[in-house]
């Protein structure tokens, strides 16, 4: 009897976890050190270049349709002269319990064997459910079929699909680069090792604020950084189990260093 109950409990539990994997071959993880990040946005442009993100123009920016898969959020607090500006780069958190995956009726977004929240453009029917459910507002929708003024289209990365009108997209952890690394490793008969994959944002980041790697590998940089006492995850209380780990910024928040400072 209790065996059946446990089974039933597990079964019910499994319906609460979107996707169907609990163990990952690789567990791709990103660590963002907010004490290093200076908000320069090099990562943002790098992602545009790598992932064929369209430029939407002023009007569409105005109604919040900018495409960047990674954005720098700014929070300004305090009054002059005790002002603090805080930055945080936010991209898809590749939640292991991703609300977006739960919402997609057609499995256009699902969890793969490497712990990635992947997006299958061809499969997407554009119901917006994933984007509505995403608690981090990282999903971007192709409101139109975007055009590149010729010859700007010559820059488009052939390793990445150019998306068409009506489909959802978001940061992929540069899956095309992961693929290349996995193929190369396979050809060489080994596993992907630390440093084989660089996401475009990580690659450009001048302050080295972003680190990417496999959390299943105990010796990887991300595994080590993930143990930092400064570790936290964004909106962790929502139990989305994100794959992006932030390291807290070091700063004295409350009493600022205004002119009265001794």
């Amino acid at each position: 009897m209790s065996g059946i109950l446990t089974k039933l409990k597990d079964k019910l539990q499994s319906y609460r976890v979107p996707g169907y994997r609990t163990k990952f071959e690789y567990k791709w993880t990103m660590v963002v050190d907010l004490d290093r990040c200076n908000g320069c946005e090099a990562c943002v442009v790098a992602c545009y270049a790598e992932n064929n993100l369209p430029v939407v123009g002023k009007r569409d920016c105005d109604i919040s349709r900018r495409f960047s898969w990674i954005r720098i959020e700014r929070y300004i607090e305090g009054e002059y002269p005790d002002v603090k500006v805080k930055f945080i780069p936010i991209m898809c958190q590749h939640c292991d319990a991703a609300p977006c995956e739960l919402g997609c009726p057609v499995y256009a977004t699902y969890h793969n064997q490497d712990g990635l929240n992947v997006q299958v453009y061809n499969r997407c029917v554009g119901t917006f459910t994933c984007a509505t459910y995403c608690t981090y507002d990282v999903r971007r929708f192709n409101w139109f079929t975007y055009k590149w003024d010729s010859p700007l289209e010559q820059q488009l990365n052939p390793d990445v699909t150019v998306r068409e009108m009506g489909v959802m997209e978001k940061c992929t952890f540069c899956i095309q680069r992961i693929r290349v690394a996995k193929d190369t490793a396979k050809d060489e008969g080994r596993k992907v090792t630390d440093g084989d994959v660089q996401t475009a944002c990580m690659q450009s980041c001048p302050t080295d604020a972003i680190t990417f790697g496999d959390l299943n590998d105990p010796n990887s940089k991300v595994s080590k950084l993930a143990k930092s006492p400064r570790r936290y995850r964004l909106l962790e209380e929502l139990n989305t189990d994100p794959s992006v780990i932030y390291l807290k910024r070091v700063m004295d928040e409350k009493k600022g260093h205004g002119s009265s400072h001794g």
């Binding site: 907010l34 805080k86 930055f87 964004l234 910024r249 700063m251």
Partner: peptide
């Protein structure tokens, strides 16, 4: 909302 979390410099 604890979005950009910090630790004091001390």
């Amino acid at each position: 909302r604890g979005i950009v979390q910090t630790v004091p410099t001390g």
